[in-house]
């Protein structure tokens, strides 16, 4: 999917405008303080208003420039999600979710190996030497980090709820 930069600016402006409205609306739930003249609601509202104005400028000027660009070759960029990116996002979320259950060492070994596989070019999957190095690093790095923090720095990394 090809999307021009100006179109992306329009989307970004709309998202930031909605975010500014959200910040302004939620400020009504902040208790009103009387300890000072401005109070605890003033700055968030002020920021939300400024953000709203600027995101409006970003959106409107991008729409204007887009109209002008329709007859010209505007700068375009390929967008859309791809498998490597999706898998990296999924790996990061799973790493956070599982680290508290299985602990640092096991989760980090699994994450490191999976993340390396995601980043490796496909032709390297059949290269036994590279795969062995990847596996060795995936095991050694978390074990070494855990050893250093546990034995030398006396800092406990998450051990996992299942092993407690």
């Amino acid at each position: 999917m090809i999307v021009s930069e100006k179109k992306k600016n329009v989307y970004a402006g709309i998202v930031l405008l909605l975010f500014a409205i959200f910040i302004y609306v939620v400020s009504f739930w902040i208790p009103e303080s009387k300890s000072d003249i401005l109070g605890s609601r003033f700055f968030p509202r002020c920021t939300a208003i400024l953000m709203g104005i600027l995101s409006g400028i970003l959106t409107l000027s991008s729409i204007e420039f887009r109209k002008r660009e329709e007859t010209e070759d505007g700068f375009t960029q390929q967008t859309g999600l791809n498998h490597s990116l999706l898998l990296t996002c999924l790996a990061l979320i799973l790493y956070y979710l599982i680290i508290l259950q299985l602990g640092f060492v096991i989760t980090s070994i699994a994450y490191l190996f999976c993340q390396c596989l995601i980043l490796l070019p496909k032709e390297d999957y059949r290269n036994r030497k590279k795969m062995m190095i990847t596996l060795a690093i995936s095991v050694l790095v978390p074990v070494a980090i855990n050893f250093i923090f546990w034995k030398i720095f006396m800092i406990a990394l998450p051990v996992g709820n299942l092993f407690m």
Partner: peptide, 27 residues
């Protein structure tokens, strides 16, 4: 415009937590 919007976004994230003068929670 993008620089200022980015700065305002950072300021907004800075509001999360306890207001130092009134001690009320925000966001």
């Amino acid at each position: 415009v993008k620089g200022l919007l980015s700065c305002l976004l950072g300021i907004t994230f800075g509001f999360v937590g306890t207001d130092s003068l009134s001690s009320y929670y925000r966001y």
